[in-house]
């Protein structure tokens, strides 16, 4: 889809005087402030991490910071989370990571593409009623998704497997996973349209006008100008959509958990906490296992923010 590389509206030109101006803000004081904030934000995560390395009895009887004076660590929580526990499969947690990916990847890509198309039309191909549609979509963010579970289940169990009703016929081949993708897509669309519309509507008018004057169709403008230019915005939304779906339990539990074979990581990690929530120490280890892939996604999408990010949001 994105064969064209983003035409660099490189506002961040590397002229020495400008850099000097910017560097003025990053005084040593600012560095200290950033370090303090980063430390403040990290302490709880550190606590989570240290807790995940402690035996259960210690967790309940002494503070995690005491390990720095009396080190007593164990990898058994990780051992249990990764390889033991009731996984019904011999290979430990790995199949459930695959399940999570199988749920998360389509549930991230599909809404982003759909939302960016809608956002483009609502921002640039306006028509009578387009504002009303946009504001309705915006307001729909507030509908608690819990309210949608029952009606959607009724729809799916009543016949969403028919190719005719699904917009994308290929999906119905995959049974319940398609239900999860569709549901996540529906729930994420309002925010996705809202955020992307905000960025797309601020793309420089001149660029789009120029293309239109050259005879490009709207769909072509979307594909070869709007989409590449809004990559940074798309990347930032993608990170969060990925995170939300990755950490979701409710939607996948409702639509995918009829058999353990299709369950995501979150559902399996929950299993580990025990019937009466007796193994919270395993949950801390599980939290760290499940954080790894979102962090990879964050770092790999980071580069989109570094240079020329949101170049388009500058008014033309």
């Amino acid at each position: 889809m994105t064969t064209t590389t983003p035409p660099a509206i490189t506002t961040a030109t590397d002229e020495p005087p400008v850099r000097k101006v910017r560097r003025a803000f990053s005084s040593p004081l600012a560095s200290v402030a950033v370090v303090i904030l980063a430390v403040l934000w990290t302490v709880p995560v550190l606590g989570l991490f240290v807790t995940s390395l402690r035996p259960k009895a210690d967790v309940a009887s002494s503070g995690w910071w005491t390990v720095f004076s009396h080190p007593h660590f164990t990898l058994s929580n990780y051992n249990t989370v990764l390889f033991k526990g009731g996984y019904n499969v011999n290979s430990g947690l790995a199949p459930y990571i695959v399940n999570s990916l199988a749920i998360t990847i389509p549930a991230t890509i599909i809404p982003i593409i759909l939302a960016s198309m809608a956002a483009y039309v609502l921002a640039w191909v306006r028509f009578k009623g387009s504002d009303a549609i946009f504001f309705t979509i915006f307001a729909l963010q507030v509908v608690p998704l819990q309210m949608s579970l029952v009606p959607l289940l009724q729809l799916y169990s009543g016949g969403a497997h028919i190719g005719g009703i699904t917009v994308i016929p290929a999906l119905h081949l995959h049974g319940s996973l398609a239900e999860v993708w569709l549901s996540h897509t529906m729930f994420s669309l309002p925010l996705a349209v809202f955020l992307l519309h905000n960025f797309i509507s601020q793309l420089p008018e001149s660029v789009i006008e120029a293309a239109r004057v050259d005879g490009a169709s709207h769909l072509r403008v979307y594909r070869s100008i709007v989409l590449p230019l809004s990559m940074p915005a798309i990347a930032s939304f993608a990170i969060f959509q990925f995170l939300w779906v990755w950490n979701d339990l409710l939607v996948s539990l409702t639509f995918a958990a009829k058999t353990t074979a299709a369950q995501p990581l979150t559902a399996q990690l929950q299993q580990l906490t025990g019937s009466f929530g007796s193994h919270l120490e395993l949950l801390t280890a599980g939290a760290f296992v499940s954080i790894i892939i979102p962090m990879i996604v964050f770092f790999s999408l980071q580069r989109y923010f570094v240079k020329g990010m949101l170049a388009g949001s500058v008014k033309g």
Binding site: A115, M117, V121, V125, I137, L152, F187, V193
Partner: peptide
Amino acid sequence: CLVPVVLLLIIGLVIP
């Protein structure tokens, strides 16, 4: 561009 989104939203959020 709009029909898929509007349709999904009607099913997923407006009706609920």
